[in-house]
Design a protein around this nucleic acid. Structure first.
Lengths: 124, 124
DNA sequence: CTACAGCATGGAGTATACTCCAGAGTCAAG
DNA sequence: CTTGACTCTGGAGTATACTCCATGCTGTAG
């Protein structure tokens, strides 16, 4: 498959696919003799793209996904290591959530109790 | 007050103070005749810095804070407009929170139920 | 054979909020 | 008068994840 087709199939733009290659998240297949310079994607690469989609949905950054793939290729990814990574990511997410919830609560408080003098409440 | 003192007082680094000035969040006082080129901060500026601190804590971006100050200088900020802004920010925060909570829930699910085959569950 | 869609490359631009640095000017104490 | 701390300016760098663009090559339909 060529880049346009893969783009339609996966929903990643062609630019994004090239970008993923550039940062090492996706390896480009070396071209066979006499083959054009166009990128060719095989089934394994398509699957990897869906995995990337999944992992992004779990909150992993591209860098983390890359490291994860590297671990997998390196020594075979153990479920225990993966679980640990997920737990760590989960804790980070929880902290971020708490932070946002605090902001939200503060906003709610000011907006609901200001009675005409929210500027003072916000100390503006 | 000069920049170093203000930095200590407010906790914003000197670089940050200059940065805020550059993006228009803080106006530099014009220098008086014969005065040096050093920045001088008066009480009003210090207060504005504390307001910025507050508003950042409420989740407003610098750009939003700037717009807010502009509205205030322009026509005097009405509590009703401010409340509306806060409500909008609050909704945005809530959506972000929901999104993160979904990620967290998915991670929790996989991590807790994988039983040795989390790779399959993650579709890696 | 030619037109045109599709692809390649390298580089710049976007958004956010700074941080760091070099090179030079300024101020106050001793 | 010198030293050292402080400040100035302009510009580059950081992190994240792309997007957009110009210019030029490639593949295929008619």
């Amino acid at each position: 498959m060529r880049i346009g087709e893969v783009s339609k199939l996966t929903g990643f733009s062609a630019d994004t696919l090239r970008w993923y290659e550039k940062i090492g998240l996706l390896k480009r297949k070396p071209r066979a003799l006499g083959e054009s310079n166009y990128r060719v994607y095989d089934q394994a690469m398509i699957e990897r793209l869906f995995a990337i989609r999944q992992l992004k949905g779990f909150g992993f950054t591209l860098k983390e996904i890359e490291e994860l793939f590297a671990m997998d290729e390196d020594s075979g990814l153990q479920c225990s290591s993966l679980t640990e990574l997920m737990e760590r990511k989960r804790k980070a997410l929880q902290e971020k959530i708490k932070e946002l919830q605090k902001m939200e609560a503060k906003l709610k408080y000011v907006a609901q109790t200001c009675q005409g003098n929210c500027k003072e409440m916000l100390e503006i």
